[in-house]
C-alpha cells in the first residue's frame, strides 16, 4: 500500500516539476514581451515628439532605409497592439499553469498525508 502511494507521489511530483519548468519559461517569455512593449512605448513617444518634416530611418539589416514618419508611427502602434495581445495570451497561459500547479500541490499534500497516516498506523 505504502509503495503504491509512494509511486503515485513520485508521479505527481514529476508532473509538478515539469509544470514548474514550463511556468518559469512562460514567465520569462512574458517578461520579454513586457520589455518589448516598454521599448515600443518609448519609441512611440519619441516619434510623437518629432516634427512633421523630420526624417526617420529604419534599420533593415545593416542599412538605414528612409521611412515616412506617419508610416513609422502607425507601424509602432500596430506592433504595440500585437505585443499587448501576446501579453494577454501569456497571462492566460501563466494563470492556467498556476491553477494546474495548485491542483497538483493539493494532490501531493494529500498523498503525503496518506503516507504519513499509513506509517503511523503501521
Amino acid at each position: 500500500m505504502a509503495a503504491e502511494i509512494q509511486k503515485k507521489l513520485q508521479k505527481e511530483l514529476d508532473v509538478f516539476n515539469s509544470l514548474q519548468k514550463e511556468y518559469h519559461k512562460a514567465v520569462a517569455q512574458k517578461q520579454q514581451l513586457d520589455g518589448q512593449l516598454n521599448e515600443n512605448k518609448a519609441v512611440k513617444e519619441e516619434l510623437m515628439l518629432l516634427k512633421k518634416d523630420s526624417e526617420v530611418y529604419k534599420l533593415i539589416g545593416p542599412v538605414l532605409v528612409k521611412q515616412d514618419l506617419e508610416d513609422a508611427r502607425q507601424n509602432v502602434a500596430k506592433r504595440m497592439e500585437y505585443i499587448s495581445k501576446e501579453i494577454k495570451r501569456a497571462d492566460g497561459h501563466i494563470s492556467a499553469l498556476e491553477n494546474k500547479q495548485e491542483a497538483i500541490q493539493e494532490n501531493v499534500n494529500k498523498l503525503k498525508n496518506d503516507l504519513g497516516n499509513l506509517k503511523i498506523g503501521a
Partner: peptide, 11 residues
C-alpha cells in the same frame, strides 16, 4: 541621426 529603439532612427 539617433537610434530611438526597435530599429528606428530619427534625424
Amino acid at each position: 541621426i539617433i537610434d530611438v529603439g526597435t530599429g528606428y532612427y530619427a534625424q
